[in-house]
């Protein structure tokens, strides 16, 4: 009681200093950098950003009272507070108060639960986007350790580089010929896991031109970090130019695919003219067929084994 202002100023000053330091440092470190999720360039990512902000604001109705009450309790009822405060050592609880704080989070979660139900359906990666324009089909194969993008309607394919026209829905069909991977383009939204012998779907749409980053988010072995790729969101005519460029590139059939699918790192960007239009289905089906491992997987095995 008599030790005036001793203990508590330390912690309070510490907390204030920590918060200030975080804010200042955060502003310094983040200024001028691309914060993809908060600066979306696609319709899905924009909705996801709004949902994110809504959730943060909603949960603040519980978080802010918690922080205020926590610091008030710590400050006011600290031992040695020169101000006389109430002391009720046998206070076991208070039904009304407890009902209030069962009620606050329950209300928040009820609201958020409804929003979750609705948005989970809206943002379902399987739901194909429709803005009246013709969608672009892209087939994606995750390989050790690169991405293969096949444009079946344009008859071309590319490795580690995705060109998409702005403001047109992109309907991805994805599979893996590697350990489980996931494709994520933060500026456009939603990632999705891809696995061998299975194909999955994802529908995204870019609303701005620009170059975005895309990545694999699930570890697939030693070349995993090399799987960042560039996404070029361009206008229709640039996209057509790029297609023309690819049409003149070397052909891609199943045999060349097997060569490409062998584990390799940092092979850079490649363009192909698609010769085998069934390529994607063949890659999916080779794990479904009863014969099991094909030659490609065997060579995968040897390559991995050699590296250990």
């Amino acid at each position: 009681m008599t030790k005036r202002g001793k203990a508590p100023w330390g912690p309070v000053a510490g907390i204030v200093a920590v918060i200030l330091a975080i804010v200042v440092l955060g502003v310094l470190l983040l200024s001028g950098k691309s914060i993809d999720i908060l600066q979306p360039a696609g319709v899905i990512a924009s909705q996801q950003k709004d949902l994110l902000i809504f959730t943060v604001v909603l949960t603040m109705f519980a978080v802010v009272p918690v922080f205020i009450l926590l610091f008030m309790a710590a400050w006011k009822f600290r031992e040695g507070n020169p101000k006389k405060t109430k002391y009720s050592p046998d206070d076991e609880g208070n039904r009304t108060l407890e009902l209030i704080w069962w009620g606050i989070p329950l209300t928040i979660i009820t609201i958020l639960g409804i929003v979750t139900w609705v948005t989970t359906h809206q943002l379902d990666p399987f739901r194909e986007l429709d803005n009246g324009k013709e969608p672009v089909r892209v087939q994606v194969i995750s390989l050790d350790w690169k991405w293969l993008f096949i444009y079946p309607d344009q008859g071309i394919a590319s490795v580690n580089e995705l060109y998409i026209p702005v403001n047109r829905p992109i309907n991805f069909t994805l599979t893996a010929d590697s350990p489980m991977s996931a494709m994520w383009i933060p500026k456009l939204g939603s990632q999705i896991y891809v696995m061998k012998g299975m194909s999955t779907k994802l529908s995204l749409m870019s609303s701005e031109t620009g170059v975005f980053k895309g990545s694999n988010t699930n570890i697939t072995g030693k070349g995993y970090s090399d799987m960042y790729f560039k996404v070029h969101s361009v206008n229709e005519s640039s996209w057509q130019d790029w297609i023309k460029k690819a049409e003149k590139a070397e052909p891609l059939n199943y045999k060349q695919y097997q060569e490409l699918a062998k584990p390799s790192r940092n092979i850079g960007i490649k363009l192909f003219a698609l010769e085998d239009k069934e390529l994607f289905d063949k890659v999916v089906m080779k794990y479904v067929s009863s014969s099991g491992m094909d030659h490609n997987t065997d060579s995968n095995y040897e390559a991995r084994k050699g590296s250990h």
Binding site: I37, A45, Q47, Q48, L51, L52, T55, L112, V115, T116, T119, T120, Q122, L123, P125, A182, P186, G189, S190, Q191, I192, T217
Partner: peptide
């Protein structure tokens, strides 16, 4: 929230 998780998972 699955809609957010799809972005930050």
């Amino acid at each position: 929230v699955p809609g957010i998780d799809f972005q930050v998972h």
